[in-house]
């Protein structure tokens, strides 16, 4: 099963002892573009962060290409939410992109010219090569998002996890990102993308995970992305489950 890029089983995550996602079990087929869709607070970002060991997991297992994340970091690239960093930071676009190579460069060693060339190529690929030497606060929201995407691209990973890359970006950026996603698919790479816009799910993705605390449905877009499933995903939360969860939090049960 080592060709499965991302395999999640029984994953449960609790924030302050209040479960955010429940018992997630998904296997993502290689070479697909996967959309993760669900209402606010459904735990979409939590799912990605838990996969990447960024937040403690209550129970369950996550495997990348059949191995633990620590062993295959180089094959997995992460595009965090744009709001996650301070865009006032004194750094140029190209330096941010080069961060994707730090792991490869190794400790102590400086960033060399060829690394910057790789970074420049990635910026060209996302269509903002001319902005390489801008300080990042002087970029528009869409351009900042593209910088993050370029940072993931330089890694030459096989699996890309993206946290809302389409949030509040201009049309040109959206088109650019979609082009990159299509290119990834042609190259046999896999992308898991958290997505908000239900209108475009069918156009952008071929596999979809409907998430609302638990996996409501997961599978090929044609089969799974149905009105009935969407109703289940967005049609409110399970009140009793919520009550129980809340009671559990109050009594500090370790879930």
């Amino acid at each position: 099963m080592t060709d499965i890029p991302l395999s999640i089983s029984d994953l449960t995550v609790a924030y302050h002892r209040k479960p955010v996602i429940w018992d997630i079990a998904v296997n993502i087929p290689p070479g697909t573009l996967v959309g993760v869709v669900g209402p606010n607070g459904a735990g979409k970002s939590t799912l990605l962060k838990a996969c990447l060991d960024l937040i403690p997991v209550t129970s369950g297992r996550v495997e990348f290409f059949g191995k633990a994340y620590q062993e295959v970091r180089h094959r997995v690239a992460y595009v965090p939410q744009r709001e996650s960093v301070d865009w006032d930071f004194p750094i140029l676009a190209i330096d941010v992109v080069a961060m994707g190579l730090y792991r490869q460069i190794g400790w102590f060693l400086p960033v060399r010219k060829r690394h910057l060339q790789t970074a420049q190529a990635a910026l060209d690929r996302v269509g903002i090569g001319d902005l390489a030497n801008r300080q990042i606060s002087q970029l528009s929201g869409g351009q900042q998002q593209r910088v993050f995407l370029a940072r993931a691209l330089v890694q030459q990973a096989d699996l890309y996890l993206m946290d809302e890359p389409f949030a509040a970006v201009d049309a040109a950026t959206e088109t650019a990102i979609v082009e990159i996603l299509k290119q990834m698919k042609t190259d046999g790479k896999t992308a898991v993308v958290i997505h908000h816009d239900l209108q475009t799910v069918r156009d952008y993705f071929d596999y979809v995970i409907l998430l609302n605390m638990r996996v409501v449905a997961a599978g090929a877009v044609d089969e799974v992305f149905t009105n009935e499933n969407l109703q289940k995903t967005y049609g409110g939360r399970l009140t009793l489950l919520d009550q129980a969860t809340e009671a559990m939090r109050r009594r500090e049960i370790k879930t």
């Binding site: 060991d53 996650s84 961060m99 792991r103």
Partner: peptide, 15 residues
């Protein structure tokens, strides 16, 4: 630099 700019990315990359 990585630590100061984006610590969660640093962690995700294994630093």
């Amino acid at each position: 630099t990585l630590l100061c700019f984006d610590d969660s990315y640093a962690r995700a990359r294994g630093f």
